[in-house]
Simulated assay, not measured.
Amino acid sequence: MKVEKANVLGGVVVAFLTAVFGQYWFLFVGFLVLSVGDYVTGWIKAKYWKHNESSAIGAKGIVKKVFYWLVIVIAFFISYCFIQMGDLLGINLSFVQLFGWFTLASYIINEIRSIIENLIEMGCNVPKFLSTGLDITQKLLDAKTNTNESDGETNG
């Protein structure tokens, strides 16, 4: 009986996430998990390794992560609006849907890089190919979007 309830609950959660975020809902959930993971690893690093835990810095980090979500919403909203306007004008602007996906991909890479940096600073042995692979992925993404945002701050 408990297994049935868990299956029903899981189905409801997945159906809800699919309705809100579409078939790629797991990317948004993954970004949320990575954001929390980055915050937690940053907090642990500050408290136990650097001994400079600060509630003001922690609050600033949370606010920053909330604004990442706002930027993602804006990117997808812009995409949706331009696609709808293109349909009205008879112009195929479906390619602008990539605005949202490139934004989400950039933030996912940023969170993973920040977690890896936190772990390295805490003395964890992180395979070099992870950070190198993420650098290459960010450069490829930047090349596709003709931007160079990866030069900015990666700690979150």
Rank of each mutant, 00 (worst) to 15 (best):
residue 2 K to Q: 11
residue 4 E to A: 11
residue 7 N to V: 14
residue 8 V to Q: 11
residue 10 G to H: 03
residue 11 G to S: 02
residue 11 G to W: 05
residue 14 V to W: 00
residue 14 V to R: 09
residue 14 V to G: 00
residue 15 A to Q: 11
residue 15 A to S: 14
residue 19 A to K: 08
residue 21 F to C: 04
residue 22 G to F: 03
residue 27 L to I: 10
residue 28 F to A: 10
residue 29 V to E: 06
residue 29 V to F: 08
residue 30 G to S: 07
residue 33 V to F: 10
residue 35 S to D: 06
residue 37 G to W: 06
residue 38 D to F: 00
residue 39 Y to R: 00
residue 41 T to H: 06
residue 43 W to R: 10
residue 46 A to S: 12
residue 48 Y to H: 08
residue 48 Y to C: 04
residue 48 Y to D: 04
residue 53 E to Q: 11
residue 53 E to I: 03
residue 54 S to Y: 00
residue 55 S to C: 03
residue 57 I to E: 13
residue 58 G to C: 02
residue 59 A to C: 04
residue 60 K to E: 09
residue 64 K to H: 09
residue 66 V to C: 14
residue 67 F to K: 08
residue 67 F to W: 12
residue 69 W to M: 08
residue 70 L to Q: 09
residue 72 I to H: 01
residue 74 I to V: 15
residue 74 I to K: 06
residue 79 S to K: 02
residue 79 S to P: 03
residue 80 Y to A: 13
residue 82 F to T: 05
residue 84 Q to P: 02
residue 86 G to T: 10
residue 87 D to Q: 14
residue 90 G to D: 12
residue 92 N to I: 09
residue 93 L to V: 01
residue 94 S to M: 07
residue 96 V to N: 06
residue 97 Q to E: 15
residue 98 L to M: 15
residue 99 F to K: 01
residue 101 W to P: 01
residue 103 T to C: 15
residue 105 A to W: 09
residue 107 Y to T: 05
residue 108 I to V: 12
residue 109 I to K: 01
residue 110 N to Q: 11
residue 111 E to K: 09
residue 111 E to D: 05
residue 112 I to D: 02
residue 112 I to F: 07
residue 112 I to N: 02
residue 113 R to F: 09
residue 115 I to P: 01
residue 118 N to Y: 02
residue 118 N to L: 02
residue 119 L to H: 03
residue 121 E to W: 05
residue 123 G to V: 00
residue 130 L to G: 03
residue 132 T to D: 15
residue 133 G to R: 03
residue 137 T to K: 07
residue 140 L to G: 15
residue 143 A to F: 15
residue 143 A to K: 14
residue 146 N to V: 12
residue 151 D to A: 14
residue 152 G to Y: 06
residue 153 E to G: 07
residue 154 T to K: 15
residue 155 N to I: 10
residue 155 N to Y: 10
residue 155 N to H: 12
residue 156 G to P: 02
